[in-house]
C-alpha cells in the first residue's frame, strides 16, 4: 500500500472501536484510503516517517485527516497530538481526537494543543456514526487543505 496517499489515518487501540469506526467511515464511502494504526508510537512513526515508515513514507504527504483515540498504550493520543502540532511540517494536518471520557481536562488540553475536533465516543452507536460521518465529511470533503 502506498502510505503517501492515505486519506484518513485512524489511530485506535481498541479493536472493537476500530472496527466500528472503520465500518462507519466505510459506510459513508470515505474510507478509500484509510489506514489503521494500533498504538501511539507507531502513529508517531507514521506521521513523522520514522522507524518502520522511514523508507516508504514522505513526511511531505501527510494524511488528509487523522482520527485518534486519546487513551492508548505506550504513547497516548495527547502526546502524539502535542508532537504533531508543534512540528511545522505536520501541524497543518487536521486531527480529530476521540475519547470515551467527558473528563474536562482532556478536552481542554486537546484543544489547547491544537486538535481540530474532539469527540466523546457515545455509547449509542448512531450518535458515534453520525459524529464520525459528519466530521470526516467536513474535513475530507468541505475543508480546503492548506496549500503546500
Amino acid at each position: 500500500m502506498n502510505y503517501n496517499t492515505v486519506d484518513i489515518l485512524l489511530v485506535e487501540d481498541n479493536p472493537n472501536d476500530a472496527e466500528l469506526s472503520i465500518r462507519e467511515i466505510k459506510k459513508n464511502n470515505l474510507a478509500n484510503n484509510l489506514y489503521h494504526i494500533r498504538d501511539g508510537a507507531e502513529a508517531m512513526d507514521f506521521i513523522f516517517a520514522e522507524g518502520q515508515y522511514s523508507e516508504n513514507r514522505d513526511i511531505g504527504s501527510p494524511p488528509k485527516l487523522i482520527i485518534m483515540d486519546i487513551k492508548m498504550p505506550k504513547v497516548n493520543g495527547i502526546e502524539v497530538l502535542e508532537r504533531l502540532k508543534s512540528d511545522d511540517r505536520t501541524k497543518s494536518t487536521p486531527v480529530i481526537m476521540l475519547s470515551s471520557s467527558r473528563e474536562n481536562p482532556d478536552i481542554a488540553k486537546c484543544y489547547a494543543l491544537g486538535a481540530n475536533s474532539y469527540i466523546v465516543k457515545p455509547l449509542n452507536f448512531e450518535g458515534f456514526s453520525e459524529a464520525i460521518r459528519s466530521l470526516s465529511f467536513y474535513w475530507l470533503m468541505l475543508n480546503e487543505p492548506p496549500v503546500k
Binding site: 472493537n16 472501536d17 472496527e19 466500528l20 470515551s100 452507536f125 458515534f128
Partner: peptide, 10 residues
C-alpha cells in the same frame, strides 16, 4: 464504557 460501546455497536 469501551466494552459497552462494543456491545451496542456489534
Amino acid at each position: 464504557r469501551a466494552p459497552l460501546r462494543g456491545i451496542i455497536g456489534f
